[in-house]
Design a protein around this nucleic acid. Structure first.
Lengths: 246, 246
DNA sequence: CAGTGGTCTAGACCACATA
DNA sequence: ATGTGGTCTAGACCACTGT
């Protein structure tokens, strides 16, 4: 008897669930609206809560949902376009409108950063912390690594570690002529301290943007910026960003 | 009695597990080496398999591990640097070294793409499929959307839908003078068909790169490329990419 | 075939936010 | 105090890959 292949490729439940929920979000929910809680949704779809959660996690990863412990699950607004690759030739600190300097101190750079800076991993560098906000929401936390050699005129202790020191480092850095810049984007998970600044749980998916600033034929500074992957779409270059930056 | 705060912030098990495993990967394992299976690892650390899996998932997200069903979990090599934002002024198809044209047909573009192209969502466009390989490994799957208006000299059916048609569309596109380009990067999850091309499971985290090509004051084409987030670090611009592209 | 990772269940308890 | 999402368990079965 010719058995026709039924369900030869059974789709996982959570995958099917995800598409069902996704369609429902498009048609039946408004941005900001809160969904029924997980236990009720699981019951309504006849699956275990863990399975339902697997679907919700995917939708959150795609920026469709926002979940907050103790509060609930809400429909997320479309991702914000965040300019990252514009103004090819500016030092950090030049465009202060979106970035906010937090503080600075001196410590060793991580091995990967030391390699980019081409310095001894044991050597301590200036580390400037900054935060980026867009429309009131924190979107990125940045660590800017500046070797002492890049800011020779900075009196070592002319300001105590803190905001004043941070501004001094940025000011000195801007006296160099910027010769070029390159960037890389990769997926990461938020470290505990970054997570706190971004108002997310540790381990949340983030986009890591590594920027290398070149001057005097050397790498003068390296920045590692941690962007919330759920709420941000990083935009690069171009003359006219209106459409993508919406 | 002054109770000193012990464990006032109990770290989740999977988080602690992740750091332990991460350190072990650095010190005790070589790239490509296979780890003990999940059941044994869970037993060894005294946790449920689900908890162990949560730690492994994070490490895979960060590109430290590679897991394949039926095979096992192996230590992943460092991420590949994949140039995405170089050659600011080239049409797709010009640099054929890494991209491989698959085929083409005609269909409606997704709503988001139609908006970028500034065309009626019902209008059908050319869709060219391409694949990108680096060091033998598939790293990206691309859909290139080209409205008929951008390639007016293309005889509609001068080639049947397929590779020949794809090459014809690219050839015609390159006759236009490219005036600019902008790009955006965001996190997504692999659609079923992309997942197959990328040799991953559906839903795997991917980096979506949306490129808008401008010519004659209009958006002449839009490309949506799906990059494997686990194996790729996307690199942008700059004069000298050696260090970051390693 | 045996062994692997992937999916799913039905429960339990915890941390957090809010009223 | 209540209700939310986050963590964790101990099992089960499935899909896939190799031999």
């Amino acid at each position: 008897m010719g058995t026709t292949q039924l369900e030869s490729v059974p789709e996982p439940k959570y995958w099917h669930l995800k598409t069902v929920l996704s369609d429902a979000l498009d048609s039946e929910f408004a941005v900001g609206e809160i969904l029924p809680n997980e236990r009720e949704l699981a019951a309504r779809f006849g699956v275990a809560r863990a399975t339902l959660r697997q679907a919700l996690e995917q939708l959150e990863l795609e920026g469709r949902l926002q979940r907050r412990r103790g509060v609930g699950t809400t429909v997320a607004p479309p991702r914000m376009g965040v300019a990252v690759g514009d103004s090819e030739h500016t030092w950090p600190g030049t465009t202060a409108d979106t970035w906010q300097t937090v503080d600075a101190d001196e410590a060793c750079a991580p091995a990967a950063v030391a390699r980019l800076l081409d310095i001894d991993p044991e050597q301590s560098v200036h580390i400037v912390r900054r935060t980026r906000k867009t429309r009131g929401q924190p979107v990125a936390a940045e660590l800017l690594y500046v070797p002492a050699a890049s800011v020779p005129d900075l009196a070592a202790i002319d300001a105590p570690a803190g905001p004043a020191r941070a501004r001094a480092v940025l000011r000195e850095l801007q006296r160099l002529r910027l010769e070029g810049r390159d960037q890389a984007v990769e997926l990461g998970s938020a470290r505990a301290d970054d997570a706190k600044q971004l108002d997310r749980l540790p381990g949340s998916p983030v986009l890591l943007v590594t920027t290398r600033y070149c001057a005097q034929g050397r790498t003068a500074a390296v920045s590692v910026a941690t962007y919330r992957a759920d709420t941000c779409r990083l935009t690069f270059g171009g003359t006219d960003m209106q459409l993508l930056a919406g």
